[in-house]
Every structure is written in structure tokens, then in C-alpha cells.
Write a protein that binds this DNA or RNA. Sequence first.
DNA 1: TATTGTTATACTCTATAACTATA
DNA 2: TATAGTTATAGAGTATAACAATA
Lengths: 150, 150
Amino acid sequence: MNDLPDSPFAAGLDAGLREFVGYTMKRATSAVTADAARVLEPMGLRITTFSALSVICHSPGVRQTELAAALGMERSNSVAVIDKLEKAGWIARERKSTDRRAIALRPTTVGLARQKQARLALLAHEDRLFAGLTAAERRDLVKLLSKIEV
Amino acid sequence: MNDLPDSPFAAGLDAGLREFVGYTMKRATSAVTADAARVLEPMGLRITTFSALSVICHSPGVRQTELAAALGMERSNSVAVIDKLEKAGWIARERKSTDRRAIALRPTTVGLARQKQARLALLAHEDRLFAGLTAAERRDLVKLLSKIEV
DNA sequence: TATTGTTATACTCTATAACTATA
DNA sequence: TATAGTTATAGAGTATAACAATA
């Protein structure tokens, strides 16, 4: 059904790429983040907005620049994310009295509740996605990932 | 320097997110793919184009739909990627005689050489990035990632 | 009818430069 | 002069719908 010589493999066409650890990491991460996005979507959250909301809930008063740096994103790109959280009523911007250039981000009561709800949904989701790994294996995975030079 | 109560942590603002394996996976993968992109860029390749070129070199005669499925991308989005490879002279499109709807993708001599060159650069790159992991640990990492339910 | 390649379109994420107001 | 937040913009990746040619 093919012009010769053609591939001997119907499946596993990406076998040659599996020698790269980064390729396997990217494929696995894609699957995990896509599923996480599906879980968050009914709650009006995306991965970026959930991450930002979590940092703000965990560290109330955080500045926007600190938030962006913590999440590894550009300051400029954090603005739209924070806008969404603010418009949803989950966080509030407060101009700092000690430095009027800076803005302190604080969660609202509703925001705290939403973060807790989303966190539980994501934990359940990871329990399902990582069902094939024991708790020790999950810790090993995180430990190995943390050893990568950045 | 902060309005009270504010965060007790200057660093580790994302500590609350570290309970999610997916978060660590995403951060690590981001670092790895960004570095891989930097390595490929001087060769006129991106991660997507390198991946497609590799599959075509490894499985000459592959169809566009098969290629897209192998890489987990949409058929429609593979067109632009293959266009770039073709315009660079690294692959050729050949209409199949047995099924004139389908197109067989084959690498050119230049394309094969470019893929080999890029592969070596990426292997060296991974050796550097994963220097903190032993060979056994790298295999463990891949094995653990492969256990994730997709 | 179904499939292959294709075009069009839209949306998210990301990256860079420049502006403003404050320091 | 430097920094915090902001705006504008552009590129890459991704997702869906629809079309022509072919099966």
C-alpha cells in the first residue's frame, strides 16, 4: 500500500525521537496539562490563571513582578492573567502605601474558595493520571525532574 | 517594605504549586524545550520542524496524516511545518501512485545530513542539561514518564 | 460516503519594546 | 537613573470547520 521503500513501522513512527529525554517529557507534559486544563475549564480557570491565583492565595500581598518571576512568565504577560482574576472577583489589586509604583495582590473570600475547589479537583485529577505510579515513584519523578540543570 | 500581612517568602513563591507533579513537569519541560530550541535555531530548525524531519528521515515515504498522528499534532497544522521543510530543501513531497490523495514524504540528501547534525547537537545538549542525572536515572525518568496514563 | 491534503480562522502562550508614574 | 505596572505587537503552537480531489 506504499511506494517503496517506505517505513517499516505503522505505529511507533516517533521511535527515533524517543532517544531524547526531552521528547518524552514534552509528550507526557502535554497530556498532563491538557487534562488539567479540561478539569479547570468548568471552574472558569486555566493553568496560568490557577497558578497565579494559587500563588496569591498562598502569599497574599505579593507584587505582580514577584508573581510573574515566581511563575517564570514575563511581567507584561502577567497583566492579562491578573486582569482576568480581578474581573472574576477572585483577587484585588491594592496600591502599596510604601511604594506607590507597586501593587499588592490579595485573594478575595470567593477567590480563596475557588482556589481550594480547583486544588482538590486537580489533586483528584493527578491521582487518576498518575494511578500507574506509586507514591514513591511520584516522588522519584519529581526528584529526577528537579535534578535537571536550568 | 510590604503592607501587612503579606508573604513570608521572597523565594519559593510557587511552593504551593509544587504539590502538583504536573507543575514540576511543566517547569522542567519548559526549561528543556527552550534550551533545545536555542540549539536548533542556528540550524534553521525548531522543535516541531526537527521532529517532523526526524520522523521522515527515519520512515521515508510516511504520509502527512501519519506524520501528524505520530507527533500528536493536527493534520492541518502539519502542512505549514512540512512546507518549511520542503522550502528548505530538506524533504520532498511525492504524490503516491497507489493512492493519489496521499503524499509520501521523503528526505533529501541535504535533509538527511541536516537531521544528523541537529541530532548530534541535541544529544550533546541533553548530555549537558541532564549532567546531574546518571544514565540509569535518565532511564528511570523516561520509564516513570511512560507510566503516566494518557 | 469517507479520507487526504489543504486553507482559513481564532485563541493561548510567549517574547520584546516602549510608555507612565513613581522611586 | 532605575523600577513597577502597563500597552502594543508579533510569533509559535494549537484547535475546529470547511473545501477539492480522490477513494
